[in-house]
Write a protein that binds this DNA or RNA. Structure first.
Lengths: 106, 106
DNA sequence: ACCAGGTACTACGCCATACGTAATAGTGGC
DNA sequence: GCCACTATTACGTATGGCGTAGTACCTGGT
């Protein structure tokens, strides 16, 4: 797996893509820009489209009719649910870890 | 990479371990329990000790003198910093994605 | 002393998948 | 009709997540 990029604190293409699509349909290339802006992580094409294919296979996103060379994708209901669940799990862990960090510092 | 476990919303052993050690030194086996309790994710031995070895190699945690069969680990200053940074990045992304989710629902 | 059971860790291997690089295709301007 | 730019596909590598199994330690019972 998951060779983590050296420049980033973390990375999870699938999650990043879902987060990006939560803002509305988008085609692949523009997700790269969106993700870079919002998370500070630059995904290469291989990473992005690989993740896209997997997410589509899982039914979390759907391909919309191509607009010229662009292939827009939209998040599905299942995708929204998954995103919500993962975000919740993340926040839960983040809170516990954050509290421990603060306790240790204090 | 990262074959994600089917039962979990997300997984990142390294981060989970750092979060667990932020609460104080612990040996491997007890991290498994702690992580299961706090994040709902059960790491197998292979996953856990692999992550521990990597983290130690990166200087984010240190092995303490063995206590019988147990091998306690403690988080280092670098580890704390890394944890803090990753948590911050996570929260940042989480906020953006959460806001989008809410906007879409509303 | 010996054995059984639970705790803690080591060893080994598979293969999914994150990531990079490079090639390809569609679009608009001049 | 060519050229630059945008967007995607193709391909290869190897990191590291995960499972399975096996080993050692420790405790209590008899």
């Amino acid at each position: 797996m998951a060779r983590r990029r050296d420049n980033a604190e973390w990375s999870d293409p699938g999650l990043l893509v879902l987060g990006s699509l939560a803002g509305g349909p988008r085609h692949g290339y523009s997700m790269t820009a969106d993700i870079a802006a919002n998370a500070g992580i630059e995904l290469g094409p291989g990473t992005l489209y690989g993740a896209l294919a997997r997410l589509e296979g899982q039914g979390l996103i759907v391909a919309l009719p191509a607009d010229g060379a662009r292939r827009p994708y939209a998040i599905t209901a299942a995708g929204t649910q998954t995103l919500r669940a993962r975000l919740a799990a993340l926040d839960k862990f983040s809170k516990v870890a954050g509290a421990r960090l603060r306790a240790a510092t204090a």
